[in-house]
């Protein structure tokens, strides 16, 4: 039995273990679209798009093993019913920025399965620390989903895994990440711990490394802040995946 919950729910979002929720073709399209969008919008991209569906399939297998082994949990994030675009219609240009190539990155007409991003939790068990991360597809930026997702990850870390410290970091200069991180770090009484120069290699070491600003929330901070009672771990009412999750809305 994995130590991580396979499904979770917060007021506007729900989460499913990614290797169960998403197939290789869907993952392939999403990483490519997401990477394109983030590259256009920000300079802060460390991941490479999967070069072909087999790479996406291998990646999902790795996510699955890491989930089973309790090393790293990766969840796909979906909109809950009632959220804007939760029926899978593409985001209108007036509602949110979208890619100029006409494809609404990550927006998918898949019934009740609008896949908006990925949340991950890396466990350093010996350090009794987790590191939290998120990727949100571009049309869903600016809605506070990243902060909402953080409440779920902290609940897993502190209420299920008995972790001492949760950390999070952003590249210096990435104002979007900084804003969303500061928001929930403040809510849970965490601290900014410093700015670490030359911390992340870039382009496999060929370019100038990035500096990283990092923050932590301790178990005590989380409890003093009253935890996150709105988070439900392992809810049993997650909608079923549709038959064809690979259909892309508006692909050109």
């Amino acid at each position: 039995m994995p130590v991580f919950p396979e499904t979770m729910r917060t007021p506007r979002l729900r989460y499913e273990r990614v290797d169960d929720a998403v197939d290789a073709f869907e993952r392939y399209e999403l990483t490519r679209a997401s990477r394109d969008a983030r590259e256009r919008e920000t300079a802060y991209v460390t991941t490479s798009p999967d070069p072909h569906p087999k790479a996406a399939s291998d990646e999902l297998d790795r996510f699955g093993s890491a989930f089973e082994d309790g090393e790293r949990a990766t969840w796909a994030i979906f909109l809950r019913p009632g959220e804007p675009d939760a029926d899978g219609d593409p985001v209108e240009p007036s509602e949110a920025p979208r890619a100029s190539d006409g494809r609404a990155d990550g927006v998918r007409k898949t019934g009740d399965r609008v896949h908006v991003g990925v949340a991950n939790l890396d466990c350093l068990w010996e350090n009794r620390r987790v590191h939290t991360g998120v990727t949100l597809y571009k049309p869903y930026w600016g809605r506070g989903y990243a902060s909402e997702r953080a409440t779920a990850l902290l609940t897993v870390a502190f209420e299920r895994l008995d972790i001492e410290v949760a950390s999070v970091a952003h590249f210096e200069g990435n104002e979007n990440s900084k804003r969303q991180i500061e928001k929930w770090v403040r809510r849970f009484g965490g601290t900014e711990d410093g700015f670490f120069r030359n911390w992340v290699p870039r382009d496999g070491g060929d370019s100038e490394p990035w500096g990283l600003r990092s923050y932590t929330i301790t178990a005590a901070d989380y409890r003093d802040a009253g935890g996150a009672p709105e988070v439900e771990l392992d809810p049993d009412c997650v909608p079923k995946p549709t038959d064809d999750p690979t259909e892309l809305e508006g692909s050109s």
Partner: peptide
């Protein structure tokens, strides 16, 4: 410079 604190960093 002092850069900051890395919590639970070494075991």
């Amino acid at each position: 410079q002092y850069e900051g604190l890395l919590r639970n960093w070494v075991v």
